[in-house]
């Protein structure tokens, strides 16, 4: 088991180095200093920034230095926000992202599994057909349209029309759980579900609706395929009820690809949905990255990209391991 994990890690290290190489090269195509300071910086300013990020050294030295600093998340100081390190801003951006991506992921997975179970149970009948048509229709609308219309009808309109029930903020974010400094020293734990509902529930709903179409179709296809297997026929022959077959025999086996798919969407937890964060103005990882790009904040971009890629690779490894764990047929070699 551990040998397998280790082997996977070793295999993915060159992949990670490759990503860093590509990304660092891509970020240096345009001179980062010129991007930040405009076309004509004074030599002193230029020198200071170049020294700061080691941009005056050969690329290979920069590459090695950067990789050496990754384990400590030491990516230097932000250019735009002087005095803050990239690591600080990275850590600050995690809770807002998590507070809406975790519920989105869980809710989307659960609702999709239930819907696809219903669809697979009634396969070929009107219920199934309607659900699948709805899924295809839902998939054909752009993500941005869901966000814009969701924000308008969910938050903007109720507020404009002064309905008594207007629970969602149009955009913005406030911490809803954590430690808070109390006046007079010390800190206290606070937890406020209403704040969460105000700022995070609407993005969650939009995210779930978007994910539903793709997930439902995939899960249903998996379940229907499972239903044609021999063990289902055996169970039918020995007289098990259809319900028992669906929920006990079939679901257990269908869960293997389903778990894999849920795992592959895990990086979304950290990267957040850039679009949702942009539109709902949630200061998560995605929005921080886009802001850094708009500010030409080179150290921030480089650091974020490195972290995102690492998270992605770790989830890929984790997916393989979990896949091997839940499915004994997969050999660990």
């Amino acid at each position: 088991m551990w040998a397998y994990v280790l082997r996977k890690l070793l295999y993915n290290i060159p992949v990670y180095f490759g990503i860093i190489l590509l990304m660092m090269a891509a970020l240096r195509v345009n001179d980062p200093v010129n991007n930040y300071l405009g076309k004509h910086p004074t030599p002193e300013q230029r020198l200071a920034l170049e020294k700061d990020m080691g941009l005056d050294q050969p690329f290979i030295v920069q590459y090695v230095m950067f990789i050496a600093h990754i384990p400590l998340l030491d990516f230097g100081d932000s250019w735009k926000y002087e005095g803050t390190t990239v690591r600080e801003r990275l850590i600050r951006a995690v809770p807002p992202s998590l507070s809406f991506t975790v519920p989105t992921l869980l809710a989307a997975a659960m609702i999709s599994i239930v819907v696809s179970l219903v669809s697979a149970y009634y396969r070929g009948r009107p219920v199934d057909k309607t659900l699948m048509i709805l899924a295809v229709l839902g998939m054909s609308v752009s993500y941005l349209v869901y966000i814009i219309l969701g924000q308008f009808f969910g938050a903007f309109w109720p507020r404009e029309a002064q309905w008594s029930l207007a629970p969602f903020a149009i955009s913005g974010y406030e911490p809803w759980i954590g430690m808070k400094d109390v006046e007079g020293g010390g800190s206290a734990f606070f937890f406020s579900p209403t704040t969460w509902v105000t700022y995070c529930l609407l993005p969650v709903i939009v995210g779930v609706i978007v994910a539903m179409g793709y997930d439902t179709r995939f899960y249903r296809a998996v379940m229907v395929e499972e239903c044609t297997k021999d063990y289902i026929i055996t169970a039918l022959a020995k007289g098990a009820t259809k319900r028992k077959i669906m929920f006990v025999h079939m679901l257990k086996n269908a869960l293997i690809p389903i778990v894999t798919r849920v795992m592959t969407t895990l990086p979304f937890l950290i990267t957040g949905s850039i679009l949702l964060e942009m539109f709902f103005n949630i200061p998560g990882m995605g929005k921080t990255l886009i802001t850094a790009i708009n500010d030409n904040d080179f150290p921030m971009i480089q650091g974020f990209v490195a972290v995102f890629a690492a998270v992605m690779i770790l989830t890929i490894i984790l997916t393989d391991v979990i896949y091997a764990l839940v499915d004994p047929r997969v050999r660990l070699s």
Binding site: M23, A26, G286, I301, V305, M312
Partner: peptide, 19 residues
């Protein structure tokens, strides 16, 4: 595996910066 290990939107963001 290298290309699929870069989150899609992050790649887009880097390309925005590059271009």
């Amino acid at each position: 595996s290298t290309m699929s290990s870069i989150p899609y939107l992050v790649l887009l963001a880097v390309l925005v910066y590059m271009f």
